[in-house]
Every structure is written in C-alpha cells, then in structure tokens.
Amino acid sequence: MGGCDGCASSGSCPSYSSGDSCSSGSCGGEKKLPPGMLEHYNTNQSTADGTLVFIEVSDKGGVQKIEPVSIQLLGKASEMQGGRIFGIVFGGPERKELYKEIFSFGVDTLYHVRDPRLSVFHPEAYAESVAAVCERVIPATVLIGSTPRGAELAPRAAASMGTGIVTECSDLALEGRKLSMFRVSEGRKTRYECITFPQVATVKEGVFPFPAAQEGRGGTAFYWQYKGDGFKQIL
C-alpha cells in the first residue's frame, strides 16, 4: 500500500481501496493532512464575485429608455474592476432592442426576465427575480439606482437574500470583493461595510459620471423565466 497505512482518508481514497499505492504521495503516510491543506481549501469561504446592476427601463410615450442612473452604475462597476458585470432587465421581447446599448456600457452577461407583465413595475416580482438571479451568479455586489422604483426594490431584494443594504451612497470603493459604501448625512461622510454577500447599495442619479459607450462591444444574454405570482392588481 506504499505509505497509505494510517492515511487520514479513512479508506476512502480510491488508490487505497483498489489495492494500488497512492501515486500522488499526498497521503503523507501519517494520520493528518499535508500542512496548510485546510487553509488552502477553505470551503467556508464565499465564492461571491462580480457585480450585478439593475437596469431600470422606463417606457414613456411608447419609447423605452434606460434610466441614466443605471448606465452611470455600469460605468462605476467597470471602473471598480470587480470581476464580471451582470445586468438584469425586466420586460417583454421589446427589451431586445436595448441589448446592444446595455452591452456597450460594460455588461458581460445580461439576464432578461422576459415577461410582458414585468414591463410594469411589480416590486415583489422584481425582488424575487433579483434574488433568484443572484442565487445563480452569486455576485459580490448588487447596485441599484436610487430612483423611486429602485429605492422601493432594493431593500426588498436585499431582504430576500438575507443581506444588508446601504441606500443613497455618495461613493463606492472596491478592494478585492469588499465594497466600501460611503454616505453623507448631516454633513458627515461615513464609510459602511456589509458583512454578508451580496453587498447591496443604491446610488442616486448624478453621483457617478456618464460613461462612454464602447461601440460594438458584445455580451451574453440569458432569458430568465419568472414563475412566481408577485403581481399587483393594478386598476
């Protein structure tokens, strides 16, 4: 068995059970794992990475338009270089016309919650969908514009994910995956941190500059089906 006797694998190592010797030599021949192995494979570490931005779209006079604050947040996300940038947009097939513009502002992967009923704002359905997409992509950060609808959506989405939120941030800074969220209140600028992932922040329009579009930049779009019943009865 060549050094497998006393191996901490407790006989679960395939090399041991087949009768072959342990070819990698990693069993160590002692009743413990190689030094530093548990630290290296820290299975308690979160795998959250990247930024999800809520792309708010308004429909005025039959013309759909991305809210400026969503584009400003995409610019900030690109500047912070915190990994992949995900976008989430709601509405029917007509939203496809916005894909090119969304990708040009830095989105790598777009989740289109494709349902004509969701062209109208339903905060419960929106929050459920944001949480479901976050469960799929596991972002470290979620950024939502502090418009009236965004301000209504963001806390519910954060609660759906059991995480905290800092609203109306005046600045954001990323170090690794740790987001510092700054807020000014009564003339005082304070830095906040969220100890859980994802870190949810809302930002008002105009806090960050409008980024330049990268013409011809592409991305990947996924359709996402909303299967819940979080719709309001609008009269």
Partner: peptide
Amino acid sequence: GSRVFEREVC
C-alpha cells in the same frame, strides 16, 4: 443582528 456596520467617519 445587523449586516451593515459603520466603519469610520471620513
């Protein structure tokens, strides 16, 4: 029970 903490005044 909180998730967000104030770290410093800038």
